[in-house]
Design a protein around this nucleic acid. Structure first.
Lengths: 164, 164
DNA sequence: CACAACTCAGTTGTGCACAACTAAATGGCT
DNA sequence: AGCCATTTAGTTGTGCACAACTGAGTTGTG
């Protein structure tokens, strides 16, 4: 009872702590990843989200902002300024689609395509930084994807339940 | 060879994909958590990082900004504006320490202490949203903490290795 | 005492995430 | 053709993360 706020530790308090631990651990891991990427991607002049965009473009060739957002689970509010920065860095071009004037096609420039050569060494360093082998990574990834699905579903239901 | 960028798929490309999957899965899970918290914490008028700060304060009573940052792995650049918002919401007070004028003590107001009563129901809903039992959560948490440690170590070493 | 090294909070600037909104274009419908 | 719901980017505003820096305060050393 030395600290007033910590008084009356009931069974609910154990929940309080456990909860903070799982989400906190997750965010800590996410930020730690970000830190490693920051260091490794500095040479390429990319941030981590920009790197993800480039990964998709290197795989898909060219595609509209909408599709890009679906791949990365990001909306235009995040992608528009990000893509502008990539464009002013000379890595991509953005052009209104001729078929559908609402749509903007994002495609790689020569420079953007060339950057791929320097990026292929990144993943190996990242995997090494995790200290895990491929099987462990796959397993963890699967758990996380399940968790994400469960959380997304729950969030939708909470929102509906909140329709007061 | 239909899409130029995806041509010449060598062994390096598998790495490229795997890599993006593990970090991407992690970030997706982190954002999904954020989404659930956003919905659940809306009633309390807190964002998720603000909730974390309150959790620490409810447990520790009062403490300087520095200690708070150590608990949460956040620096003053993040905490200062966040704490100002909590202060203007009437949940905390910030006072220069008398013993050490450099330090700022953060402590709960009556209102901030009272909010705890309404927050105790949050963790149960979060755990329910994950669809996991406590053992699974503990296991996943442990894996993530190990991963974070490995990544932090690697980032430090990469930075040193970058001392070119 | 004087002075250098350090500590701590705060500020500034950049970039990301997301909600809410705007505006243009599209396509279906009558 | 005219109308309207939908789709698509973009803009604005809020909040967080972090690097780099400032400036006040503290501590150790000669």
């Amino acid at each position: 009872m030395s600290t007033p706020a910590a008084a009356a530790a009931g069974p609910e308090d154990n929940w309080l702590r456990l909860d903070s631990q799982i989400c906190f651990s997750l965010q800590a891991a996410s930020r730690a990843f970000n830190g490693v990427y920051r260091v490794i991607l500095k040479d390429l002049g990319l941030t981590y989200p920009q790197y993800l965009v480039m990964l998709v473009l290197w795989e898909e060739g060219e595609l509209p902002v909408k599709k890009l957002g679906e791949h990365l689970r990001l909306d235009s509010g995040t992608l528009s300024p990000l893509l502008k920065r990539l464009e002013s860095a000379g890595l991509v071009r953005r052009e209104r689609s001729a078929r559908d004037e609402r749509s903007v096609e994002v495609r790689l420039t020569e420079e953007g395509t060339a950057l791929r050569e320097r990026a292929v060494r990144v993943p190996r360093r990242i995997v090494a930084a995790t200290g895990l082998d491929l099987a462990e990574i796959g397993e963890l990834r699967e758990r996380l994807d399940q968790l994400t699905t469960a959380l997304d579903t729950a969030a939708r239901q909470e929102e509906l339940g909140d329709a007061r």
